[in-house]
Amino acid sequence: MLKAGIVGLGKMGISHAAILGAHPLVDLVSVCDTSSLVLNAFKKYSRVNPYDDFNKMLSKEQLDLVVIATPTKHHYNMTKTAFDRNINVFCEKPFSLSTTEGTELVEIARQRSLVNQVGYHNHFIGTFREVKNLLDNNVIGEIVHFNGEAYGPVVTREKGSTWRSKPSEGGGCMLDYASHLINLIQEIVGRPVKVNGVLLKSIYSGGVDDAVYTLLTLDNSISGTMLVNWSDETYRKMSTSVTLLGKKGKIICDATEIKIFLKEPNKDQKLDKGWNIKYITDYSPVVNYHLRGEEYSAQIDYFIQNIINNQQGTLNTFEQGLYTDKVIEMIYNYDKAN
């Protein structure tokens, strides 16, 4: 059994705690947070040891892995501390607020051969995996345009202030919502290398972006748009989609279905001419424990399996998380310069 700890018991941290708690190959031994309300609940009703000090937790517990789900500004220090003790790290997204710090962490992980992963869970949603497969098999031919979209109802009123409304702490629509989409496009279509236009809009939040609209060119010369808004209450929860227009057809994909239009049938992929609709039910990974979506369990399971097999993962590595941070930096820099 691998011994696990978690720091940061917000929405994601609590969810990771439950997933690790239910994992057959993991013993969740400790959690760490600054909220006594949350820590006391663990003390009273669970078997895990609660801590209010991350360093103390690491020195008292012999951990094989730690999940870092604190606000982004703490990711660097905490990851570095864990790496110093040779502990494998799963870090929530976005990875880091400074690409210099992020680069250092990628290098330490490489030197020490520690398993590292960032929580970009969209890669563990079956439909998005299938889009990657379809593109790898050149199903829609040369891609002429991509459009990534993410909408949701996080900030819909002019009130309330948590770290999510402070860009210096990793808040804002760019870091919270757009990072997911950048990472998804970066890994399934191509890595953005050039920013051609940016509109950052503050709708309800003071001093932070609630919407990000941008034009990007990727390393394979494909260009396209990215439209993100977390202040759109016509969506019940975050909804992410990718549209790819190719010379031989088109793919529209979200977390629940893939619509594929082909000019000619594709026998290898068993796709007809015209519209083909595929549902998530065909692509869901089988998990042993389900909370809020298979992808959350599947990503932790992948991390655990890599530790057990003593191998580096290829999905959601720190290096990939760092590249997303670099794209975010490019978009901000473009906005400032223009």
Binding site: A17, G21, A41, S46
Partner: peptide, 8 residues
């Protein structure tokens, strides 16, 4: 399911 996973 959250309580189940947390062992509460």
């Amino acid at each position: 399911d959250l309580l189940l996973g947390l062992g509460m």
